[in-house]
Design a protein around this nucleic acid. Structure first.
Length: 553
DNA sequence: GATTTCACGTA
DNA sequence: CGTACGTGAAATCC
């Protein structure tokens, strides 16, 4: 990893921070605004810009982002640690231990943040056995020893870089995942632009008007329920929110289902009118309870931005996660996501990303050739001598571990035509079934739970089979998102949503075309870098729109 | 009061 | 006997 490492640390409140260079020199010591100015100058200076190192992005980069700072390259100890060992737990004592080749479960017990039990305990930062003194985990110690705390981050970063260098692409993925965590800080801070009047209209449509008090809320719920209950004369006492009652009711109407989940009920829409009414009621009820007035008040600020917590990776294959409904906003509400006046949204989503990723990670030359087409499944269909729907099913079945049903014959053809891709997936499944972790293309450890019966082991196999594809797709996506973030900065445009294979960018209207071009070029650059110029094509559908809903075909 | 089950939103 | 996560209501556990 080229360029010098500079550590950044803040107190928990984000009031006071330091920048420490390798060798221990303190380059800055003050407020977030002062640090941001120093960092900006360092990035503008001639030569290789520094890579900013921090224990975690939220604490160190949060104050910088809120002060208007913008940084290009970083190293996030928590994200690198998650790559190294898998899972989500990145407590600092474990990060230190893993970086130093020590058993993280052997780390000394943590202390409460209590001044009394540390008085005789803070003489040595690194214990004789190599573990970090637990006192260093305590906010008051970090606040009082900020530059030492930052210097520790540099020590860990160098160790992590050495460990990741033993994995192909490991160091590059560490940088990219670190950048994704920085992007998450910005996503959390900036939020997704919402057209509040439109969103209020849509919520009213599905959940009813904003209730003034609890009595009115009850009345609105009762009104919503009546649409279903009116179809059930004499049964108006049943509780639609109680799955057991609903199941027993449906059984009495001749609808025999194990549970009342929508995909089980959908075939019975025409059996009894109450089934369709119930399914429609559930959609409105979902919006009322999860994406209704409480959600709007709780997560959409006075500035019309929807904010929720973002994480750069989950504890599994490593996809980004988001709260506050940002990853599960119901389609009917998407017209309420809209560019501000004078701005546009650039929506870009990757086409058929998982099979294209499989072509890269498995190095299957025949499968790679299929990615040359805009519609990969059409080419696969020709190569397998199948109809397109059957070919698509076969590819998905291979990646998800489905073995039964109509996919069986198609899977045999896949084996003959794409032996390397299929062997790659099978190897991942076998490792999972044996209770062994898998490593993604970018070098992320995906741990698995050990033991269990055969059904459980099979389930773990399906998980690891999917994780090596889903995880690699997440790595490519984050590399793309981060590249786009940096390229969009000069246009005053910003990424406002990441949705697994879809990017939403908020851009000044006069820079709409330039922003769209930057997103497209970022994909090409990121894919080239990530795939090592493998002969695999990635495609994105790009549109300039005002409302998220306009993107739907 | 905390955890589990059911359900459903997204990819 | 296709994967993941986040959220909320009700049931269940302690």
């Amino acid at each position: 990893m080229r360029g010098s490492l500079h550590a950044v640390a803040f107190d928990v409140a984000g009031q006071h921070g330091v920048i420490v260079a390798e060798g221990g020199a303190v380059l800055a010591d003050g407020s977030a605004a002062e640090l941001a100015a120093v960092m900006h100058r360092a990035e503008q200076a001639a030569g290789e810009p520094p890579r900013w190192v921090w224990w975690d992005a939220a604490t160190a980069a949060g104050p910088i982002a809120r002060a208007g700072g913008f940084l290009h390259r970083c190293w996030d100890l928590a994200e690198a640690h998650r790559l190294l060992v898998g899972g989500f737990d990145a407590a600092q004592d474990r990060v230190w231990a893993v970086a130093h080749g020590l058993d993280p479960d052997g780390a000394p017990a943590r202390r409460s943040d209590d001044l009394f039990d540390v008085i005789d305990d803070d003489s040595v930062v690194i214990r004789p056995d190599g573990y970090l003194n637990p006192v260093c985990l305590q906010p008051h110690w970090q606040r009082a020893n900020l530059s030492e705390y930052a210097a520790l981050a540099l020590t860990v970063a160098r160790k992590q870089l050495a460990l990741l260098a033993t994995r192909e692409r490991g160091a590059g993925t560490g940088a990219s995942e670190s950048g994704a965590a920085l992007l998450c800080v910005e996503l959390t801070a900036h939020g997704l632009p919402i057209d509040r009047p439109t969103m209020e209209l849509l919520i009213t449509e599905h959940a009813g008007p904003r209730p003034a008090d609890e009595a009115q809320a009850r009345q609105i719920r009762a009104d919503r329920d009546r649409g279903v209950l009116d179809l059930l004369p004499g049964r108006s006492s049943i509780d639609l929110r109680n799955p057991v009652q609903v199941r027993d009711l449906l059984r009495s109407l001749g609808v025999q289902v194990e549970d009342t989940r929508a995909w089980n009920l959908e075939p019975y829409r025409d059996t009894h009118p109450v089934v369709g009414a119930l399914l429609d009621w559930r959609k409105d009820e979902r919006i009322a309870t999860t994406y209704g007035w409480q959600w709007l008040d709780g997560h959409v600020g006075d500035d019309g931005r929807l904010r929720g917590p973002w994480t750069a990776c989950d504890g599994g294959a490593g996809r980004m996660t988001a709260g506050a409904g940002l990853h599960s906003l119901p389609t009917p509400l998407r017209p309420g996501v809209a560019a501000a006046d004078g701005y546009v949204l650039v929506r870009a989503d990757l086409g058929q990303v998982e099979p294209r990723v499989l072509a890269v990670v498995s190095g299957d030359p025949a499968f790679a050739r299929a990615t040359a087409a805009d519609d990969l499944y059409a080419t696969v269909a020709r190569q397998l001598n199948l109809e397109r729907p059957a070919a698509k099913l076969a590819v998905l079945a291979a990646m998800y571990g489905q073995t039964s049903g109509p996919a069986a014959e198609a899977l045999r053809r896949m084996d003959r035509t794409y032996p390397r891709a299929m062997a790659y997936l099978r190897a991942a499944a076998q490792r999972g079934e044996a209770g062994e972790s898998v490593t993604t293309y970018g070098g992320r450890t995906v741990p698995v739970t050990n033991g269990g019966d055969q059904a459980h082991r099979r389930a773990v196999g399906r998980f690891t089979r999917n994780a090596v594809v889903q995880g690699a797709a997440a790595e490519l996506f984050k590399a793309w998102a981060l590249t786009a973030r940096n390229a969009l900065r000069p246009l005053d445009a910003e990424v406002v949503l990441c949705l697994h294979d879809e990017l939403l960018v908020h851009a000044p209207a006069q820079h709409a075309e330039a922003a769209a071009a930057a997103v497209q070029e970022s994909l090409e650059a990121a894919a080239r870098r990530w795939s090592g110029a493998a002969p695999v094509r990635f495609v994105a559908d790009l549109r300039v729109i005002r409302r998220w809903s306009e993107a739907k075909d």
